[in-house]
């Protein structure tokens, strides 16, 4: 079932070793337990989706409408919600159900991980886009970390949209596709995916079964 996923928290990175003694870089993600807050169906909502909730927080930090939704689903006060939308998903879950990692993921399958990248603030073109900057010496005065030229002359007479310049970098939603699940530790609801994952430690990430290579696969 593609598109099916869980909410989790990035724990951090380490290395695993395979039978041949090769190191595999992995990111550990604490996934769940998740709670099914809502199941959306074609008849009721026009599309099929499952709303998952993750991490039990304080009741007082939620407002009444939020609590009401959770009460109705008979779910504890979860801090994070997300909808996982895919055709055929709705029949698999019931509202109020507790979902653990093993219910959704298997070892060796591919997943997509969605997270918010580390915020780097307002960064110059050298840091943000790996521009070369200017010379540090040889008579260079005040031209060390600049962007350089940003356009031509009368023609085209404009700076092309999308020109790479200094600006805010990071703190953006980033999706990393097709990461392999190396290991699942069911007792602790932890999965290890090969490679890195956006965001800082303890950052919230969404992990879903990989859609596949292209958009045509998505519509099954």
């Amino acid at each position: 079932m593609k598109g099916l996923g869980l909410i989790g928290k990035k724990i951090g990175m380490t290395r695993f070793m395979d039978q041949r003694g090769m190191f595999i870089p992995v990111t550990l993600i604490k996934l769940g337990p998740n709670y099914v807050v809502d199941v959306k169906t074609v008849e009721k909502n026009g599309y099929e989706a499952v709303t998952m909730g993750f991490e039990i927080g304080k009741e007082k930090s939620l407002n009444k409408p939020q609590l009401g939704v959770l009460k109705k689903a008979n779910v504890p006060a979860v801090r994070y919600l997300r909808e996982f939308r895919f055709p055929g998903i709705a029949s698999k879950f019931t509202v109020g159900q507790e979902v653990s990692v093993t219910d959704v993921f298997e070892e060796n399958e591919l997943v997509d991980v969605i997270g918010v990248s580390k915020g780097r603030g307002f960064s110059g073109a050298m840091k943000r886009w790996n521009f070369g900057g200017g010379p540090q010496s040889h008579g260079s005065r005040g031209w060390h970390r600049r962007v350089g030229a940003i356009g031509n002359r009368t023609y085209p007479g404009e700076v092309k949209p999308g020109k790479r310049m200094a600006g805010h970098w990071g703190d953006q939603k980033v999706t990393v596709r097709n990461l392999k699940v190396v290991k699942i530790i069911p007792e602790q609801n932890i999965i290890a995916v090969k490679g890195s994952v956006p965001g800082s430690k303890n950052g919230v990430v969404f992990v879903r079964k990989a859609y596949g290579l292209g958009p045509q696969e998505r519509s099954e």
């Binding site: 724990i11 951090g12 380490t14 695993f16 070793m17 550990l28 604490k30 530790i185 932890i190 290890a192």
Partner: peptide, 12 residues
Amino acid sequence: MDIIRRIEQTMM
């Protein structure tokens, strides 16, 4: 960090 250490330990 602690969790990582403990998971590593199972494979050491």
